[in-house]
């Protein structure tokens, strides 16, 4: 059996100056190629979970840390963040704070330059990524002149260019309009086809549920649900944990209350429509 890319063992972390721990006794494993959607109410420990994955906790944030986090078999306590980040690409909630270069092209090359890759390799990868993410026409534009969606796309492109084993996105749609959020989901689905392991922390489940192979729900620092979307999202108690389920799921739960149970749990509008239309066509309405 292949080694999991993420192995978290009984991790508890309390930020310095805080009265309660942000993460309490969390244990889980993430396998290669999984797309994990992490959700929960504000302050439930989602962002702390992200910081655990690339070693920002315990290296960058002071506090009480216990347990172990292994990334690709390496204990995050034993190597610095700037080394661990070669394997774990983290896209932050606010793209403004992570775009440090003076043009989109240089931004994408920045991480590759930090890795000390050969010049030809950097230029080759940068050109590929610029085209792949549709940023070619923006290559000379300074980051502060980009729209919210373009900034987020650039931040994601810059991290993907480094070819991390694990891609972590902390609330990537926080500053995006619905259309840009859908475009981001489309890009992530393409990355999924390239077998990148992806962790997405998000409130807006509608956008990313069709991508996810697994959903984690945090509440008050504890991992309270962990399973495939069909299992986690159809839990009628989920709203009590501060999670707003996708509308397509809400509709099916309402139908169930009315005694109409569909054979397969649909996670997308199109699959729900298919099921409803086949259910309707099987009825004899004459």
């Amino acid at each position: 059996m292949p080694e999991p890319i993420v192995d978290i063992q009984n991790v508890t972390f309390k930020y310095a100056g805080s009265s309660a721990p942000a993460i309490v006794d969390v244990s889980l494993q993430i396998k290669r190629g999984e797309v994990v959607l992490v959700t929960g109410a504000s302050g439930s420990g989602k962002s702390t979970f992200c910081r655990l994955l690339n070693g920002l906790i315990p290296h960058f944030y002071e506090g009480e840390f216990s347990g172990c986090v292994f990334i690709n078999g390496v204990d995050t306590r034993t190597i610095p963040v700037y080394v661990l980040s070669k394997d774990v690409g983290l896209v932050f909630q606010n793209p403004d704070n992570q775009l440090v270069s003076l043009s989109v092209e240089r931004e994408i090359a920045f991480g590759l330059e930090n890795l000390g890759l050969p010049r030809e390799e950097i230029i080759k990868r940068t050109e590929f990524i610029l085209k792949y993410f549709g940023l070619d026409r923006l290559r000379d534009v300074p980051p502060y002149k980009l729209s919210g969606g373009e900034k987020q796309r650039t931040a994601l492109a810059a991290v993907v260019a480094m070819r991390p084993l694990l891609l972590v996105l902390d609330e990537p749609t926080a500053e995006l309009d619905p259309m840009s959020a859908l475009q981001l989901a489309l890009m992530l689905s393409q990355l999924r086809e390239m077998e990148t392991t992806i962790v997405i922390v998000e409130h807006r489940l509608d956008v990313f549920t069709p991508l996810a192979t697994r959903i984690l729900v945090f509440s008050e620092g504890q991992l309270v649900r962990d399973g495939p979307p069909e299992e986690v999202l159809f839990d009628s108690n989920l709203s009590s944990l501060g999670v707003s389920t996708p509308r397509v799921v809400q509709l099916q739960l309402k139908l169930e209350e009315l005694g109409i149970k569909l054979p397969i749990k649909a996670l997308t509008v199109s699959s729900l429509v298919d099921q409803l239309s086949s259910a309707v066509s099987s009825l004899d309405l004459r």
């Binding site: 920002l56 610095p80 700037y82 980040s85 932050f92 992570q98 991480g111 930090n114």
Partner: peptide, 9 residues
Amino acid sequence: ALESRCFGY
């Protein structure tokens, strides 16, 4: 963000 982009690698 800089640490997360291998600054100082």
